[in-house]
Design a protein around this nucleic acid. Structure first.
Lengths: 143, 143
DNA sequence: CGGCAAATGATATCGCATTCGCAATAGCGG
DNA sequence: CCGCTATTGCGAATGCGATATCATTTGCCG
């Protein structure tokens, strides 16, 4: 996997957390990161997950993905502008690469538009087919 | 002002809270509701605000407006489908009545789109003109 | 007007994500 | 291989929005 950001020491915990975030094809909750990285470092602590998340954010290696009313998820920071799709069944959040582009026509007159966020809701591919998929470790295809 | 939802007794507190939410032209935080309604009922308690919000939601009189990483705001439930604009300076949230419409082309193949949310960020009319406006009671033009 | 129970205000408490404190562990330079 | 100290794991503590508790107030019906 890739390189870790500048930390004074290289540890199995940091590497496992970093690997899991990079390998995932979608933003992960802190708890998901813990569950997944615990596959490589079984006794991994949630405190270490939070500490590492914070360090990775400070070096702009990962960024937080905030959805309304939900805990933060994290994904690599090098993704270009994109949006999100949340499955209402398995609750997983997926990146949506396309963007409708200019939304200036939505803005009330006198307002200045600087940025926008679009969140789509529905059923993901697997949940659309009738497959029952819950957001547990077993459904997180990482690595 | 309008009628209150079915509650066993009519109180000044309920009426003041309801009035403030209806009169506002934008979704309000619980704290904003407290500040504004306290104009009519000075000793109003935050507990009563939360109790009334809950009751008004249960009767579908108001609904929660959730923005990423922020506390819930509340607005009348009878508004049609719309989106939101948040001013990055005064932090107020405004309704945006227009909607770009069909977003099916954004959805990855195999996914089923059921709903969407769009949040615009920038400067509101007042903050675009250089006027300094902070989200305090004095800036909440209610009633 | 009287009386009962709903509603309120003040404050304590909860829930829960996140952070802290500290002893134990383990990178890594020498 | 040593030793220093960054890092970890564990459990306790924190922060804060929201809710519960309870004595007091107040609608409201008769």
């Amino acid at each position: 996997m890739g390189d870790l950001p500048r930390m004074k020491r290289r540890t199995r915990q940091h590497q496992a957390i970093y690997d899991v975030i990079v390998a995932a094809d979608r933003p992960l909750l802190a708890q998901e990161i813990l569950t997944l990285a615990a596959g490589a470092v079984p006794q991994l602590s949630i405190a270490t997950v939070y500490r590492t998340i914070k360090a990775l954010q400070e070096t702009c290696t990962i960024k937080a993905v905030l959805l309304p009313g939900q805990n933060p998820r994290y994904e690599p920071a090098d993704h270009s502008h994109h949006h999100y799709f949340q499955c209402r069944q398995c609750e997983r959040v997926f990146d949506v690469e396309t963007c409708p582009g200019n939304l200036d026509n939505l803005v009330p007159s006198g307002f200045t538009l600087e940025d926008h966020e679009i969140i789509l809701y529905g059923r993901c591919c697997e949940c659309s087919t009738g497959t029952i998929v819950l957001a547990t470790a077993s459904t997180l295809n990482v690595g």
